[in-house]
Amino acid sequence: MRKHLAEAQEIEQYLLANMSAPARLVFQARMLVAPALREKVKYQRKTMQLVRWLAREEKRRQLDTLLQQMLQDKPFNDSITSIFK
């Protein structure tokens, strides 16, 4: 794997807490002295958060579509809406 991809892999292991304790300490020490690495970690963390955020948004859309379809069924619709009357 090319060097920069290996670095992305190393950052991933750090962010997913898949590093041994000594390796984690070494990595944190490297971040302290390397602003470029620190910045890559920051943006890779944001990327992983974004992936999760977008996946949840998509899941919400899928579930909403399912519910809208199910609410076309009158008995089911009534069983929910009658609770709030």
Binding site: H4, L5, Q9, K40, Y43, Q44, K46, T47
Partner: peptide, 19 residues
């Protein structure tokens, strides 16, 4: 796996540049 890391880098750079 290689493609996954390429994608990770690509999206990471997109976020950085936009930021």
């Amino acid at each position: 796996s290689v493609q996954k890391y390429k994608c990770l880098e690509k999206v990471r750079e997109q976020i950085k540049q936009s930021d």
